[in-house]
Design a binder for these strands. Structure first.
Lengths: 201, 201
DNA sequence: GGCATAACTTACCATATGGTAGGGTGTCAA
DNA sequence: TTGACACCCTACCATATGGTAAGTTATGCC
């Protein structure tokens, strides 16, 4: 039961941090959602910062677990399943990318590298995988990273735009867009990989 | 002079909202940066919410002004200059995209459509422009929007990742990456436009 | 049974925050 | 000169917030 409460607090924290950001949520609000007082939360996690750290830690461990998606015979196929796993939120939970996006935004101020260590491995995995693709074998790391970042941006930016896009174009259109987006993404991964890095012509 | 103070407050507000987010900044902090008290700010803008609204308003007007970039004889070239203008922050100011990204994140909760009206025109412009490209004439709006969103994501996600990427890979590598990114982006716009929307094969 | 410890609770506090009220000063038009 | 107004300030306030202190209850071990 105790472990259960700890975990449920972490779940709530992740959801609320994603929705409102670190400063937009009070620890009282998180605890209250489970019918507890903030002191229960402080008992388990010590401080708001530590709680937030635990949230990040759990998310990054989920990210690391994604690595196995890359182990496919065809490197292109590996990348595609990997990015698809990022787009679908099954393995990361619905709030992971949002929390990370906020973390990127706040990182300028925070300036601690605590939350970035796992990102390094994450990006390095992707870079190495792209290097397996024949057209990219002679590409520089910067070129590869730029390509990877374009895909990541396409995934994450679309993700956080959902409410806004729904508001603008209506729910039906968004649903249609959401359903076709994975194919669109895979298409452009294919095209991008096949085209290779830019040549200075 | 009065107008000057108003504008400087708005500038400061934009910068600080971008850095720390709406809840991360106090109006006292904004005013203090100019050697004023928060009451000076309240005198000019009434409330924190209204100030934030003015910040958004000014940013969106800058966005609208970008539209003229599209009026080039070649639609592909028009898109390229347009996206390039988004990537370089000359015309939008250094904080515009960051503020908008935060706004997208908070939009779920805010759920007001106040900040989205200009986005509709903005996206519609892009959609119409892509339709001018021969390979895309028969594409659905959803397909086009998906493509546009991939580019927008590539631009904006990269933008907010700067501090993190610098932390991970070092300043030199980031600078190199940053310099080559525009070409990378243009390359993949070219490739993506030339490839056309995905065909169901 | 006794006792430590986990898992909470109610009080309490210092601080920060957005906003109100009202005063002072300069400017400018009548 | 005087009145109005813009501009900005010093109080002041209610509320929210993160965190401490200390007490209560349950649980599990000896």
């Amino acid at each position: 039961m105790a472990q259960d409460t700890r975990e449920r607090l972490l779940d709530q924290a992740e959801a609320l941090f994603a929705e409102r950001g670190f400063y937009g949520v009070s620890i009282a609000a998180i605890a209250s959602e489970l019918g507890l007082t903030k002191q229960a939360l402080l008992h388990h996690y010590g401080s708001k910062e530590k709680l937030y750290g635990e949230v990040l830690k759990r998310i990054s461990s989920r990210f690391m677990a994604l690595k196995e998606q890359l182990s496919e015979p065809d490197p292109v196929q590996g990348l595609k399943t990997y990015f698809l796993a990022l787009l679908k939120k099954d393995q990361l939970g619905p709030h992971a990318t949002t929390v990370l996006m906020r973390e990127l935004l706040d990182n300028k101020r925070r300036a601690d590298t605590a939350g970035t260590w796992y990102l390094k491995g994450f990006l390095q995995n992707l870079i190495d995988q792209v290097k397996e693709v024949s057209r990219w074998q002679n590409a520089s790391d910067a070129q590869i990273l730029a390509f990877v970042y374009q895909i990541l941006g396409a995934i994450n930016y679309f993700e956080i735009s959902q409410p806004t896009l729904t508001g603008i174009f209506g729910q039906d259109f968004y649903q249609h867009l959401d359903e076709s987006y994975p194919d669109q993404l895979l298409h452009f991964i294919d095209v991008g990989l096949a085209a290779g890095p830019p040549t200075g012509n």
